[in-house]
Amino acid sequence: MEETRIVHGYWELSTFNFNIEARGINLMLEGFKEKKLKGIKCHQCGMVYLPGPFYCRKCHVNIDEPVEISDHGTVRTYTVQYADIRGEPMPEPRVSAMVQFDGCDSWVMGVVQCDPKDIHVGMRVKIKWKEQTVGNMQDMEAFVPE
């Protein structure tokens, strides 16, 4: 076998700038301030997205119709995590789930505050909002059983 040596390298990922069309995300975060979910509906096929994109994936047309979505929904799938997304072990197992909120087609991922033994597909949950909502992702503290 040939002799090899290891040379460390890295990419300075922090230097990436991403231009994003923020209407859908801003609409969602503005909604968070009032403890509401706001998505965008495709006027052509009726698909309701959260967060809302500027175009419909299926119809390939501009979309811009805000719709209010209930903050109650159904668990469509879940996993019990023993490690965080970097692979670091967690002190306590964490339940994360994808929830379809009533009136929405997209599934939204979040942490469910419940005993890992109780979680199941089809479980009804609602959003536990922070007391003081400011319009950021942390406003949605968790999902809790209805």
Binding site: I25, Q81, I85, S96
Partner: peptide, 20 residues
């Protein structure tokens, strides 16, 4: 802008969610 901010999804958790 979104999934990385939520911070719960990676290849393994995605696979687990799909399996369930």
């Amino acid at each position: 802008a979104y999934e990385r901010q939520v911070g719960l999804l990676n290849e393994l958790s995605g696979a687990a969610l799909q399996a369930k």
